[in-house]
Design a protein around this nucleic acid. Sequence first.
DNA 1: GTCTATAAAGGGATAGAC
DNA 2: GTCTATCCCTTTATAGAC
Lengths: 184, 184
Amino acid sequence: MGWKTEHKDQSRQKITASAAELFTKRGFDNVTINDVMEHAGLTRGAFYNHFQSKSDLYAEAVVDAAQRAKNYALENANLKPSDIIELYLSEQHRQGEFACPLAFLATDMRQRESKVRSTYTEVFKKFVTRIQELTGDTEDELEAIKKTVLMVGGMAIAQAINDDELAEKLLKACRDGVNTGISD
Amino acid sequence: MGWKTEHKDQSRQKITASAAELFTKRGFDNVTINDVMEHAGLTRGAFYNHFQSKSDLYAEAVVDAAQRAKNYALENANLKPSDIIELYLSEQHRQGEFACPLAFLATDMRQRESKVRSTYTEVFKKFVTRIQELTGDTEDELEAIKKTVLMVGGMAIAQAINDDELAEKLLKACRDGVNTGISD
DNA sequence: GTCTATAAAGGGATAGAC
DNA sequence: GTCTATCCCTTTATAGAC
């Protein structure tokens, strides 16, 4: 790979990383291409050398953001399943120290085009599988889905409401619900 | 109340009803004031005789949409708690035949101003109270919150994903989770 | 109170220089 | 490949006629 190609690759990665952060925190409509490019240290015009449209970038950003959230968990949580679940349903997560796109973009998806929604759906399926591994529900998919809803849906609601006390109570309720029956 | 005042009142109600429907289905950014007014049978310019801003209308629309969803449930579900929960976690709800703003607008709230978020939060609290009454968890608020998350969060995710089969499985998992321990 | 017309700003996408 | 400049459309909000 020549240095020019390498340079282009680096720029693309900078754009994706910037998009993953901004889109996950603010959603599709409240982030402009200019925002993404400035945050990546580039200018607006350069964008279309890397992506066909804002929507295409969004789909990639969802995948990248999910990977980043996973990496954050691996670096900051103990390997115990209950610790990973605690981190997901933590105050840090609610306040956006890291952000799972499943929880932060859920109701944003309804308005997005098919490609984006399919990407979101695949990320969700992988999350369920991961929960099955973590909680030992390998033979009970419905139980794993229920726990996933408590995590993803719980965080989605926790970041929506305006009342810190209630949000903490809600997160506790979800932690209790997911951890029932997990002995680590 | 003179006929003029009455007329204005009717217009305002038409606008709120239109907004409740459109905002709940498409979110804040994907609905324009023109959309709302046309759907209400009026023109754009008349809007500011009734509301100060799009955001103000949104806050009222959240309340109105919640009331409409509740009325829909009262008319279409049996009075048995399990039937009301089934209706909430039904295919009809997922496909927007009626729409609970808590589930459909959850991740939209993060970007909204304080007034709107407070409105959403109050509607959420009332929902939890209602679930406490329905499920008999009057002395266990955390249990009621957990069930509310399964309902609201479950529907939020169900309408986000792109896979009908998975969505049905998810709704079933949530119904099972909420109905555990409800004897009607 | 509701209408038409318009102001003013923002943002997606493209053109062309370097 | 990245930049500046710009086109073109949408949208919130206002002005003024009826």
